[in-house]
Design a protein around this nucleic acid. Sequence first.
RNA 1: GGCGGCUUGGCGGAAUUGGUAGACGCGCUCGACUCAAAAUCGAGUUCCUUGUGAGUGUGGGUUCGAUUCCCACAGCCGCUACCA
Length: 841
Amino acid sequence: MSDTHKAFPFDEFEPKWQSRWDSEKTFRTPNPGEEGFDTSKPKYFVLDMFPYPSGAGLHVGHPEGYTATDIIGRYKRMRGFNVLHTMGFDSFGLPAEQYAIKTGQHPAVTTAANIENFRRQLKSLGFAYDWSREIATTDPEYVRWTQWIFLQLYSSYFCEEENKAKPVSELEAKGWSREEIDNVRLAYVADTPVWWSPDLGTVLANEEVEEWKGKGHAVERRPLRQWMLRITKYAQRLIDELDTLDWPEGIKLLQKNWIGRSEGAEVVFAIEDRSVTVFTTRPDTLFGATYMVLAPEHPFVPEITTEENKDTVEAYKKACSSKSDLDRTDLNKDKSGVFTGAVATNPVNGEQIPVWIADYVMMGYGTGAIMAVPAHDERDFEFAQRFDLAVLQVVQPSDDSDWQGYTAPGTAINSGFLDGMPTKKAKSAMIHWLVENEKGNRKIQYKLRDWLFSRQRYWGEPFPILWKDGQHFAVSDEDLPLLAPPLEDYKPSGSPEPILTKAKEWVQLPDGVTRETNTMPQWAGSCWYYLRYCDPSNSDRFISKEAEEYWTDEKPGMVDLYVGGTEHAVLHLLYARFWHKVLFDLGHVRTPEPFQKLVNQGLIMGEDGQKMSKSRGNVVNPDDVVKEYGADALRLYEMFMGPLEQVKPWQMKGVEGVYRFLARVWRLAITDEGKVSGKIQNTVCTDKELLRVVHETIKKVGEDIEKLSFNTAISQMMICTNAFTQSETVPLKEFTAFLTVLNPFAPHLSEEIHARTCGSEMLSEIDWPVYDEQALIRTECELVVQVNGKLRDRIWMAMDATEEVAKEKAFASAKVKEHIDGKTIRKVIYIPGKIMNLVAN
RNA sequence: GGCGGCUUGGCGGAAUUGGUAGACGCGCUCGACUCAAAAUCGAGUUCCUUGUGAGUGUGGGUUCGAUUCCCACAGCCGCUACCA
């Protein structure tokens, strides 16, 4: 499309309005105490998932969620809310550093350039952000408070009695030793087996491993000393408090499954003079334990293996450790394992059972050891079949299914004192017995691991930690932010030494003090950015008490609405909730949750129905769309595609469709010469039907925005435009009301037309129109008449016609008559204004 | 394997305290305008064997009436993966 074919001059007025909103600070949001702050306005906090500023720039998925929140934000402003809606950049992290290495430029340089490009793109879409609140996680002032929050974690412990975090200073006062305190800090150092990637030069969290492996990076398991965050202490609260949130049930379930709570018991088995603890969810089947399995990495394995089994055990262990993760997930392959030669004693009946090692038992979950009950566990059953181990029935199925491999609840048999008990009762009876005999106890186990929080890379927040004589201590608050030294060479070396160790002068301090050289993962910055939005330039606190109080209300979650993709369903949202809860426990924020309402936008697929990707060549660049059709058309199209949460394919023809709609609105008011059309008249609207459509539109668009049903709001505006087009004249008052409801969707076009037809005030500054109930009322309607549930006729009559009148009219209809002739009317269902169904035979 | 989501014209989708299936848009067809085309405007567009017809993935059920509620099954998409 060449310039001469533009149906309306969006390329002129879109930049014009953008710079006007910018220079007049139209969307600035005042905080309490600031100029323009109005105490009578309620707050509304709407949040986008801030982007990682990649070199590729914005893709069409970004404006989907951003337009949705922009519409909500603009709408709420017009409804008299003080709306907090701003934007920032998640600019630290491994991708930024990999990009810098690839391009040979320092990550600070590429990040700054990328942010600038993102900001340009976002501004070209006319989002009503308060840009004065923009932040980037790499800003030194932001880093300062990220590090400060880390130190809050570092100097806190989880008090089991009160089920909350408290300062470790309380333990000091109680006389706890330094070592004891270090063992309970929420941020602690541990030697743990971690996923290490030589070519990335860093460890990765369990959760990140798959992502980077998918990008072709090697990952291996090795023990390293790392910083961990004690998120497991919050497992139960992270589950329970989901119930207070207005999130999609699917996302809640994902988080619950991730945390993975299971109830059961720990049981202590004896292997000679050693005690091995196993975790089981089925203590009721203890009598059926016919063998035991340890994870190959279990520390007892070398100690209990008999001389004659040593070689096979060693060989098996070696095979397991060299097994890549891929092999392990290559599932449903035959179970493997070897006998250790050792024998364990079943505590409940003294049975001697063989001890095996097998890689189907994971060191990372439970105790790394299981009691195997092959009769009632699929995996154990498969293993027992393979190695010809004893299978003993201890549960009688509740139906006629085969007892072998029966895992559902039933009745205990062959189980001594449990015999005859239903599974549920047998479980608690066994736990009772275990406790009485000091052979075990009730146990709740979580899949959630503590959070591996350190990375060995350069582009992240350094830990504000110093070391002396093997002990760590906090950098004092006044010395924050602690910034990484400028480094020329930040490429991974292939050794697990953090990059920052290369900065020798930075690391070595007087008196034998050294700096911690690990850096934080990208998650750190994104865990609390919404808090900083509330008070972005505060240099005394991460958020002032006043700002925190103002942007919080009585709801459990601070942010009223959070919109973003499902890719963050677990990690980001779980980590942010964890940090927020710690800050809550320590009294720094007054809500227990960060995000009250969460909405996931659906993925936008390529025109071919496939996921957009460079290799498929189906990527749509928003810049191109803006250039061709304008920002309003892009915004409107992305909202018109379908429901926000649904996956939907891109269709360029669809963009043209909404572009044509915008052009129709334009032509309604503006002539080819650029003058106000004579059709627009400042007169009282006498066309009742037109008036009804306009008020219906005001009502529906408002309601649909509240429901986030933007596609149906737009279709109603199209109906309204069609009504205007068909009308002889367009009354200015009603047309302006229409422009006002269109404004959140197509802010540039609506402002421009409004400026030309009414002048004076900016549309963005006026109130949302109020619809007139009277105008909505219909007095007549088309009543649908069915005979035996089938549509036979439509008859005009008064909305409130009585059943008698309606019946009379229905029977008078020839079409109805045809179908009831010779039949007896058995029943009449009449719903005034809607339907009449005659049941006849 | 487990969990979750989805399934409506040629296409994106609309409609639920159960009440006219297919709003709105795309595409297509016809017409107006034009020397012609584009753009624009107007009319039409679920399907077929045009009927007292069929129809919201399939089969059943509840109901005067089901896209909507219940049961069973199938297909597609996403997440997860030996979690004891």
